[in-house]
């Protein structure tokens, strides 16, 4: 064992926020990949629903359902569930508390936890574009709407992951505590079978907003109405606002409830 050297004044190289976040995110990605089940869910489930497109080539209803389900899987598994279980595990292992004794800021710590899942979801939903096209989907009507949708979904479900982690006792309990957010996410897909008044309410759920945005951004239709490229901007405003509102709500909830160490 060598001896320690004299302390150097704090004039040396200080890593940038990006260096710190990427350094920590790299470790979190290693951990994600080392957990076979989480990695499998994150890498396989998001593309699986695109198999629906094989059923009836060119059927727009199937394209809509397939893409919406793919997005849902990407938001729920690599983003939401992975982040929920990673945050709870790191918290219980006292890693979060330990890291907070160092130079990294709280926001950087959270970003590094969210980044691997967010990155996987973004990559998966990018790969989904050529895959869907190859399976007979039409060219996206407005790719910006689709990209914004992916981005907002990632932010919203990351925030929901942190919020759920706050009241999840341990990693096993996440199987149960993840239910409210999963339910909220899939609520949109059952809108068609609900009575009118209920369906109107459900439209304001993130799941329904996602489905509208897939219709507008990819297929260029709003309900039964075909849209020109110019019209897709206006049509996407309301569901985008719904998504933003949910993302803000989730961020506020997460910010208010964040816990850094296990309850005593």
């Amino acid at each position: 064992m060598s001896t320690t050297t004299a302390p150097t004044p704090a004039t040396g190289r200080t890593p940038s926020a990006t260096t710190r976040v990427l350094g920590l995110a790299r470790a979190n990605l290693t951990l994600l990949m080392r957990n076979k089940l989480t990695a499998g869910y994150a890498l396989v489930l998001p593309l699986l629903p695109l198999a629906l497109l094989l059923g009836d080539r060119g059927n727009e209803a199937l394209v809509s359902t397939g893409l919406s389900s793919a997005l849902l899987m990407a938001f729920l598994f690599p983003v939401f569930y992975n982040l929920l279980s990673a945050t709870v595990t790191r918290r219980d292992e006292l890693v979060l508390k330990r890291m907070r004794t160092g130079e990294v800021s709280d926001l950087e710590l959270l970003a590094s936890l969210a980044l691997p899942g967010a990155g996987i979801a973004a990559v998966m939903m990018t790969i989904a574009v050529p895959v869907a096209l190859a399976l007979g989907a039409p060219m996206p009507a407005n790719v910006v709407v689709y990209a914004v949708l992916v981005l907002l979904g990632i932010v919203m479900f990351s925030a929901f992951g942190f919020w759920t982690a706050a009241w999840t006792r341990n990693a096993e309990a996440a199987q149960m505590t993840s239910f409210p957010v999963i339910f909220l996410a899939i609520l949109g897909s059952i809108a068609p079978v609900l009575p009118d008044r209920a369906a109107r309410v459900v439209e304001f759920t993130p799941g329904a907003a996602m489905e509208s945005l897939v219709g507008i951004g990819w297929l260029g239709v709003d309900g039964d109405q075909a849209l020109s490229f110019g019209e897709t901007w206006a049509a996407s405003a309301e569901p985008t606002l719904v998504m933003v509102a949910w993302a803000v709500l989730a961020l506020v909830l997460a910010q208010r409830s964040m816990r850094w160490e296990p309850r005593h």
């Binding site: 150097t8 040396g12 190289r13 710190r20 350094g23 920590l24 470790a27 160092g102 990294v104």
Partner: peptide, 12 residues
């Protein structure tokens, strides 16, 4: 890996 992760957050 643990030390490398720490090092990414530490000045000098």
């Amino acid at each position: 890996e643990t030390l490398r992760m720490w090092a990414s957050t530490v000045s000098s």
